[in-house]
Design a protein around this nucleic acid. Structure first.
Lengths: 192, 192
DNA sequence: GTCTATATCGCGATAGAC
DNA sequence: GTCTATCGCGATATAGAC
């Protein structure tokens, strides 16, 4: 693992416009085909440039994957810090923010969480490790029992998965958002 | 898409011992690295043979993936048919069976459900299409509203995901089974 | 059922001109 | 920032001997 830069806050990372175009194109392809199923050639074709132009923006494919993940984690960073500051509604707010993000980028982000390459990176690359640990801790609250952990696991997965599930493919975003927030509220109630 | 045989019942498919060894080795690797991240060479190495020996059992990599998926669907076929026959407890029994299978083959099967290649196959390959449709219909029951579909989506995903979630990685199978069955019962209660 | 050897292709990645 | 051209490798898949 090579760290592209030492990262304490994903928010602080700045990308050029050209880099952002690469990340946008790559995200869509990776969400559909997975990291291993997406080649540099596919990304270049989607952008209408050649592979060499892509390699000018990122030195390796892995760096593209890391940058995509950083960007998605950055979008949750504020909500996570608020949750850690820990008002009484801390968890609710964080979960609502996760629901919003899952709906906004429906299916895209969610697919990433289950990709074997990204799962591996979340274990190997320290900034990701730290972020995920913090996220789980915030979702868990004070109770660390088996049932609480199972609920937290299901809660976080339910959000990711349900937005891309075939059974709700025809449900529009706002409807889905309302139902999902009410459902997560009720699941939190079960844990308390 | 090339169908290896016309399949009405996955249960009826017979595999030789050599084929089964390929599927066993491939399943473990695919669960960890994904379909695209698993090469024929990796499968052959895990079996201690050469690639050519693997190609003797299955003509393409895709046929291996199909055979793996068929085998897992076959394990649910009885429970699905019972559920379709439709006693009052039909859904509960099907869900319990899904929980049992997810726990028995912890992390292995679950990972398959999210692989982009397998998801594509579930759309393209008719026997898979039919099976998945039947499974969703059985999970859904009579109510086809938004909330019911959301619940069914989350229910089926919760089972797959929770058994491989890091938060519950240290929980033993039997404990997990008990909690998961009680949780799915309560979620069914929410839908009724 | 397993092997060696090979064909063909697409992959990640780099060099160097414009 | 983009191109053409290329390198080396590992991918899927096949031929044919044992």
């Amino acid at each position: 693992m090579t760290a592209p830069h030492e990262v304490r806050s994903f928010r602080a990372i700045r990308r050029t416009a050209a880099q952002t175009r690469v990340l946008d194109a790559a995200l869509v392809l990776i969400a559909e085909h997975g990291v291993s199923g997406t080649s540099l050639q596919m990304i270049a074709d989607a952008m209408g440039v050649t592979k060499a132009a892509v390699y000018r923006q990122f030195r390796t494919k892995e760096e593209i994957v890391i940058a995509i993940t950083e960007r998605e984690m950055a979008a949750l960073e504020d909500a996570l810090e608020d949750a850690e500051a820990g008002g009484p509604k801390a968890r609710e707010v964080l979960i609502d923010r996760m629901v919003d993000q899952a709906i906004d980028r429906r299916g895209l982000v969610s697919a990433l969480s289950f990709d074997p390459v990204i799962i591996r990176l979340q274990g190997e690359y320290e900034p990701f490790q730290r972020f995920v640990e913090r996220l789980y801790a915030a979702l868990l609250g004070t109770d660390g029992g088996v049932e609480a952990r199972l609920h937290a696991a299901i809660l976080s997965s339910a959000i990711s998965v349900s937005v891309m599930h075939p059974l709700v493919a025809d449900v529009d975003g706002d409807t889905l958002r309302v139902h999902l927030k009410s459902l997560t509220r009720r699941m939190l109630g079960l844990s308390d």
